[in-house]
Nucleic acid binder design. Structure first.
Lengths: 223, 223
DNA sequence: ACCTGAACACCGTTCAAGT
DNA sequence: ACCTGAACACCGTTCAAGT
């Protein structure tokens, strides 16, 4: 009887999403086009539409895959506070590695509110909030605050990293930004003028962790 | 001698930006096209390009104008902590009123790092962080944490509000989201299962303020 | 069932030509 | 200096036709 034969390079949803991620990683958000995708996969546009509904679904799948991978290694054996730090750094690193993730996560909830991305993140952080001893009435509020901070800060950091990148290294990028703040005129912008040096010398990961600790300290001190 | 006469409906950069804001407010981010813009302004595409360089510059100008308006009323006479709350609510309301602002603020720093938007926000929050008595070495870190939280939370809230909107009212939207979380299976998602009710009943502004207070409490307790 | 690729509607941007 | 509007390159999506 006839067995279904499959070419080893058969088009699958996974291969399409994989190629999309490669394009996003190498060419940025503007690099993901159906033209580039069909060339890389040596196929036609219609073939892709057989496996995915449209471009948004492709972006959702890429986002979900990256988030799932970032949350796959469950930190354990540490204190809840240290576990939250580890989960947060997992997301931070994922966004750092795939800068397009920052933008996509910001768009996720409006585009696909019933999707799997937000639940994954909420569940992972929320379990540790519970383990932290936060009373049940404050679970949702505390978890939301942490998730908002983590996605907001990691996303800005990715934007930051993207600002460098194109031939400009990070030190040069920060130096330029710092000089721009210094030029802003101490009358209208005295505060920026004063912290221009801190902008130049700050470490992204240290800063991210310090901010996360503010939120964690605020939660444990308040509830 | 000939005086320059100007038609009262002469095309100016301000009129163009104003029309862009109206389109964004009424038709969403996808509603801002050069076709819609030229129709509304009764002109040709080239005329718009005489006043603005491209669409990104138009979006930047719209974003900057909305942020400047939100920060225009300086709260005063209150405690620094209350002033930070007032500034944060000003941004929260602006993003709530113009949902496209949430997305644009997330994109601002990567698209236009030397722009005026980020400096405006940092300066306004930062001055109050200083007034809070935070030591100078922590100014940048504390201000960054607050700005990240505010933009992250307000942006998510706008996405949330957009999710409702299209014929679906807020209560119905939250009810659907809550049911989706309840359906997620208590084995894989025990935490979401447990807080589905809190999602349904939470108040956006209360939640936003509670999260902000976590960050503020963390800052004052840590430094 | 799965794939091809031309065709379509739409988009941002340019530019020779007008006033 | 300021505006017109046709033309261009590119985009996501569709669909009749193939295997």
């Amino acid at each position: 009887m006839a067995t279904r034969t499959r070419r080893t390079d058969a088009l699958t949803r996974e291969r399409i999403v994989g190629a999309a991620v490669e394009l996003l990683d190498t060419a940025g958000e503007g690099g993901l086009t159906f033209k580039a995708l069909t060339e890389r996969l040596a196929t036609g546009a219609g073939a892709i539409y057989w496996h995915v509904a449209n471009k948004d679904e492709l972006l959702d799948a890429a986002t979900d895959g990256a988030v799932a991978a970032a949350l796959a290694t469950e930190p354990g054996g540490q204190s809840p506070r240290e576990e939250i730090r580890a989960v947060a750094f997992g997301l931070f690193d994922a966004i750092d590695e795939h800068p397009w993730l920052g933008t996509q996560l910001a768009l996720q909830f409006s585009r696909n509110p019933w999707g799997t991305v937000t639940p994954r993140i909420f569940e992972s952080i929320g379990r540790r909030v519970r383990a932290l001893g936060v009373p049940e009435a404050a679970w949702f509020t505390a978890t939301s605050a942490l998730v908002h901070y983590i996605l907001g800060a990691a996303g800005q950091n990715a934007a930051n990293a993207r600002g460098a990148g194109a031939g400009v290294d990070r030190a040069e990028f920060l130096d330029n930004a710092s000089k721009a703040w210094e030029k802003l005129g101490p009358d209208d912008y005295p505060f920026l003028h004063a912290i221009a040096g801190q902008l130049r010398e700050h470490d992204d990961r240290e800063q991210f962790l310090a901010g996360l600790d503010f939120v964690l300290t605020g939660i444990t001190a308040s509830v």
